[in-house]
Amino acid sequence: MVFTIDTLLFQVLPYVPVALFIIEAIRRYRQRPFSYSSLSSQFLEGDRLFIGSVPWHYGILFVLGGHLFAFLFPRELIAFGSVPWRLLILEVTALIGGLVSLIGLVELTIRRLTRDRIRAVTNVMDLVVLGVLLTQVGLGVYIALTMRWGSMWFATIMAPYLKSVVLLQPNVDLVSVLPWVIKLHIVGAYVFLAILPYSRLVHMLVWPVHYLFRRPQVVIWNAEPGSLRSTGEPERGG
């Protein structure tokens, strides 16, 4: 086997961020639970946040969901896209998702860099996160526009590659022939995964879906109710 830059990037590299992500996210959750927060800045500035945050989050959730779906169900996706008008709907909605998230992200970046109050709560890692995300989403939209149809070739090329990575038998051949823009997008995804546990991005791991299933009130006893204060004698006087 010839060892090339592709081997490094797509065969060895994937396992570093995955390992980092799993180990560090758990370690941070257990050892530094206080540091898990959305770190929302809405309290300092709300109007511009709405314009940025809502499109960004909904757009990126939709797009990431699309990637995940294409990875898990490539056959079904190809079957769905086999009729031209359905393929167009698929691609146009994906593009809209990408554009919506890109607009939101650009707005969030401008807001973070120009508002004094927001700059007061910005650290270096926040800027790294913004840089990686801007690169990723920008590349993604560029790819969606110029290398069509992403949904189809993702299902035929990327899905088997990712599957091979998951099955610990990475098949570099599949991705090594792709244009460098797409390769950069893949590498960007690994970088994203690697910085996730070290950044504010951890908030996505604690998205409170359990809220839907809990009772409205929470009462916590320091000890079993009924087992306490059974011995105290009445205080007299006072």
Binding site: P55, Y58, G59, E91, V92, T93, L95, I96, L99, V100, I103, L145, R148
Partner: peptide
Amino acid sequence: FVLIGMAGTVAC
């Protein structure tokens, strides 16, 4: 393609 995408984005 771009035009439809942008129109959809504005709508969203």
